[in-house]
Amino acid sequence: MKNQSALVAMLLACLCFCPPAVVWAGEIAVAAASDLTYAFEQAARRFRQQTGSSMRPIYGSSGNFFSQIKNGAPYDLFFSADVEYPKRLEMAGLAEPGSLYEYAAGRIVLWVPANSRLDAGRGLALLLDPAVRKIAIANPEHAPYGRAALAALRHEGIYDRVKDKLVLGESISQAAQFVASGNADAGLIALSLALAPAMKARGRYFEINSTNYPPIIQAAVILKAARDKQTARQFVDFLKQPEGLALMRRYGFAPPQAGSGGGGN
C-alpha cells in the first residue's frame, strides 16, 4: 500500500516536472493570426510532405502575439494580420533583419447567414435595410479588418446611418462568429473567413471593392529568437512558390501586388 502511494507520488512528480512539449530540430513554431487557421493546416501538411520538416502553427490575435514576442515568447516565425506589428518588432531588433515579407493583402466581404432573407448581392446598401439591426465588424481600434470595414462604410457614405447598428468583435473571427451564430444580421468579415470550410456553407458573401478601403497588408517576420531559422526560411520560401501561392489564394490570401478586385461572389 505504502509503496503504491509512493509510486503514484513519483508519477505525479514526473508529470509536474517533465519538460513541456519541446520544439525539435526541423520543427518550427509559427505564431499565426487566427484567420490563417485553415490555410495553414493545409500548408503544414504540404510543407511536411515536401521538405520533411514540420511547422507547428499557434493561432491567436496578432496584438497578443506581439506582446508575447516582446516578452520573449519562443516562436520562430510570426505571421501577423497587420504589417504594423512585424515592423515594430523589426525596429525593436526582435526580428531577423530583412526577413519581413508581405504575404497577403486582406479582403473584406459583406456576409449574411444562409437562412437570412437578406440579399448580400445588394452590397453595402443592404445595411440600411431596417431588417438589419446589428452589423458585426472587428474592433477598429486594434483590428485592421475593423478599420477597413469603417473605411468601406464611409466610402459608401452610410457610416453615420449604420453606426448605431455596429457591434464590435474582439477579432475578425469573433465578428464572424457573431453573425454566423445569427446574433448579428450581417457582418463585414475577412474573405479568408468567408471561404473557410466552417463558414462557407453557412452564409453568402459579397466582396467589397478593394479600392474602397485602405489595403490590409499582412506580413510575416522570422524572429531573432528563432531556434531554427533555416526551417523558418524554408517555410517562407515554400509559401512564395507557385504551389504555396495558389494554396494561400484558395483561402483568400492573395499577394499584395495582385491588387484590385471586383465585386461578386
Binding site: G63, N64, S67, A136, N139, H142, L166, V167, L168, G169
Partner: peptide, 20 residues
Amino acid sequence: GNIPGVTRTVSIAIYDHVQA
C-alpha cells in the same frame, strides 16, 4: 459586442487599450 455606453465595460476597455 463592445458597444460604448451599452456593453463596453471597464475590463473590455482595458483589454482594448492593451490590444492597441
